[in-house]
Each structure stands twice: as structure tokens, then as C-alpha cells.
Amino acid sequence: MIDTSDTIGINAELAPNNLVRIGRMFRPEFIEGAKDCRYAVLTPNDPLDLLHDLRVAVARRITKTAANPDSQLKGYPIPTDESLKAFSAGEICTDPKLAVLAAHVDMIASEPSKASAQHLSDLQTVGFSVPQIIALSELCAYVCFQIRLVHGLSLLETHHE
């Protein structure tokens, strides 16, 4: 059985005896690889002064772009900080640093082809370092990957019912 740290399987809401879920168990390296990536972007050895609450808030905000956003939130706790809670809910941010980050995250999640050097410069202007921007980019990439994989698995489940 897939353990509870398999947030992709949990978010896909695959039934216990579903063929897709059973099939995934034949490729444990994929499940473990995805879990390792998740831990690396949410709880890295060197967090680069990007608090866990901020990382979770970014992940939760990205899930708002999913077709069924509430199904993507399992494994991403609600931040305790009020401004990060609002940020994670997709609300407009009054804090300038969070506002620039929100605009960047929203663009990456919904229209990544619009990304430009100016967006990265904007993040630096409000105080994010290059290593932090890279870490945030990795986080965005992972959450977008999770959304697409969960959607694909749910389509396979629907097809096999």
C-alpha cells in the first residue's frame, strides 16, 4: 500500500484497489523520486532563509490554478502567519515582497511562457537572492508537476472505471 507521504497518490484520490494505484506500486522509484523532490523543495537541508510557511504558501497558491484546486491541497498545511495564509489563498497581497512573489507565482502557474528576465529582476528588487529565486522556481516546478501528474492519474482512473 502507498504510504501517507505519497501526496501525489493521496491527491489523486485513487481507490485502494484501483488498477492505476496498483500499477504505480510496480514503479516505487517514481513514487520515491517524487517524494524526495517534494521534501527537497519544502524542507531542504539549507532553506536559504525561505521559511517553511512561505514555501507551503507558495505551493498552496499554485494549486489554485488546478482544475480542482481543493483536491491538490492535501499535504500542504495552512500557513500560521496571517499574511501568508492570505497569500496561499490566492488573495491580493499588500506586502510589496509578497505582491511581487504572488504575481510571479501566478504567472508561472498559469502562463509560464510569459516569464522573462524582468520577472526575476523584480524578485531581486524586492529582496530575493538568486539562490532563493532558484529554490522558489524549483518549488513552483514541483507543484506544477504534481498538479499535472495528479490530473493524469485521475484521468486514467476515470478511464478504467
Score class of each variant (00 low, 15 high):
M1L: 14
T4N: 10
S5M: 11
S5G: 10
D6L: 09
D6R: 05
T7Q: 11
T7I: 12
T7P: 02
I8A: 07
I8P: 04
G9R: 05
G9I: 00
G9H: 06
I10F: 10
A12P: 04
E13Y: 02
L14A: 08
L14R: 05
A15M: 09
A15W: 06
P16D: 15
P16E: 15
N17W: 08
N18D: 15
N18H: 13
L19I: 05
L19T: 05
R21H: 11
R21C: 00
G23V: 03
M25D: 15
M25K: 14
P28A: 07
E29S: 14
E29W: 10
G33D: 12
G33C: 10
A34T: 04
A34H: 08
V41H: 05
V41P: 04
V41G: 05
T43A: 14
N45V: 06
D46H: 12
P47C: 09
L48H: 11
D49T: 14
L51K: 13
L51S: 14
H52N: 06
D53C: 05
R55C: 02
V56Y: 01
V58D: 01
A59Q: 05
R60D: 07
R60W: 02
R61M: 08
T63L: 00
A66I: 09
A67Q: 09
N68T: 14
P69S: 12
P69C: 13
D70F: 10
D70S: 13
D70Q: 12
D70G: 11
Q72L: 12
L73P: 00
L73N: 07
K74Y: 11
Y76C: 01
P77Q: 07
I78V: 08
P79N: 06
P79R: 01
D81P: 06
E82A: 13
E82D: 15
S83W: 07
L84E: 02
L84I: 02
K85I: 02
A89W: 06
G90P: 02
E91H: 11
I92L: 07
T94E: 15
T94R: 15
T94I: 11
D95G: 08
K97S: 12
K97E: 12
A99D: 09
A99P: 03
A99W: 02
V100Q: 03
V100K: 04
V100F: 02
V100G: 02
A103N: 04
H104M: 10
V105A: 03
M107L: 15
I108N: 01
A109E: 03
A109S: 11
P112E: 14
P112H: 10
S113D: 13
S113N: 13
A115D: 10
A115T: 12
A115W: 06
S116C: 12
Q118R: 11
H119F: 03
H119S: 08
S121A: 13
D122C: 08
T125F: 00
V126H: 02
G127P: 07
G127S: 10
V130N: 05
P131Q: 05
P131M: 05
I134N: 12
L136M: 06
S137V: 09
S137P: 06
L139E: 04
C140R: 01
A141R: 01
Y142A: 10
Y142T: 01
Y142G: 08
V143D: 04
F145I: 07
Q146I: 00
I147E: 01
I147W: 02
V150L: 04
V150H: 00
G152Y: 09
S154M: 11
S154L: 09
L156M: 15
E157P: 00
T158Q: 13
T158V: 14
T158C: 10
H159I: 14
H159W: 11
H159A: 15
E161N: 15
